[in-house]
Amino acid sequence: MSISEKEKELLKGLANNDKEAIEAIYRDNYNLIQNLIINNNGSEDDARDVFQEALIVLYEKSKTESFELNCQIRTYVYSVCRRIWLKKLQYAKRFESQVEFLEDTVPVEEDLEVHDKLSHQYGIMRSAMGKIGEPCKSLLEAFYVHHKNMIEIASFFGYTNADNAKNQKYKCLMRLKKLFFAQYKNGN
């Protein structure tokens, strides 16, 4: 089953983190997932978390080179959400009443395994970032996440010149790397 041109466009947009595409996918699918979660012992917050995680899975998938979706976005998102939610229910031992899932699903186990690994690494980076404290965190994020140049950063953070900012950035980066690799090596 091939997917429509419109869906292909949406997926391209999603891979580029395009706001309109995200909004369209969100609008088309969120209520379905919310119903699914709420009808199965979940809350609104659970629904939002599960849905957003599923979109991250799709985002990660859409960025890979060999990316190909063999079903509708709706089916894929539904399948991922179902899998994630079943896992959470089992984890929380809330899996007591009959769980009802009415829509078609596709196998997503492999994608979720990839996602779990990636999200583990993301978690390590986030926790390392949390530990280095401010202003290191903002400084590094300005350079590495928002791709600002050193002159902008220097003026934004109030350094007298770019070299001082660079010096500070270097110190911060060394701390971050140390924290990151310590956890990364422990984790693996």
Binding site: Q121, Y122, M125, V145, F180
Partner: peptide, 8 residues
Amino acid sequence: EMDRYGEI
């Protein structure tokens, strides 16, 4: 890793 962190 940093890039991916930023993207996500």
